[in-house]
Amino acid sequence: MLKIADRTFRSRLLLGTGKYPSFEIQKEAVSVSEAEILTFAVRRMNIFEEGQPNFLEQLDLEKYTLLPNTAGANTAEEAVRIAKLAKASGLCDMVKVEIIGDARSLLPDPVETLKASEILLEEGFIVLPYTSDDVVLARRLEELGVHAVMPGASPIGSGRGIINPLNLQFIIEQSKVPVIVDAGIGSPKDVAHAMEIGADGVLLNTAVSGAKNPVKMAEAVKYALQAGRLGYEAGRIEEKDYAVASSPTTGMIGS
């Protein structure tokens, strides 16, 4: 069970809803993934063209928790504006604070993220900031009172997996709120990796939506997440430099 603020979720997977080849594939991928939290972006509606289909309007909103992001914001002020717009829909009170500080790497702006998180907490939001894998920043965010920290594994959409597992491990060890590894996940292996080092959840989008077969990949990441979590709970063996025989070293035939 994943617990964020006063909510509990059976699935530890948070799924993004961007860039799927079609709504049909997306619906199936979302369903197969068994994710209960779906992220969305807030954008201007194309009101001048009628009847454009919208994924969210086709969803059973009883079944899913919406996690709008503040993507597109470069400052705390812009992020707060987007978050408030999202909340005014009456459909959600959670927000993924996402404030980009560098256009090329899409890495988050730590100062603005901290600022926006503070304001949104005061406004009563359930705040889940997307942050870099900076250990001190994660701690500062937790001290503010955020409801989860979401350090990136590697740059958004890069699919490079966890490039600094040690930092993530430090963040996981120090955090009392859930740690959700967000961004940069490329494959089931990365999902299992994040869960094995003790992450409470994983948020991914492109790894599924950009796969050759998104539905199959949704299923794969679901199992990877479960496998990684089980492995974490089971407690892995220590790494050693030299071989240690698995078979008994006594009673050898012919000795």
Partner: peptide, 10 residues
């Protein structure tokens, strides 16, 4: 006026 909605995003 701004009229906004939710669209796909990560």
């Amino acid at each position: 006026l701004e009229i906004v909605h939710f669209i796909g995003g990560g």
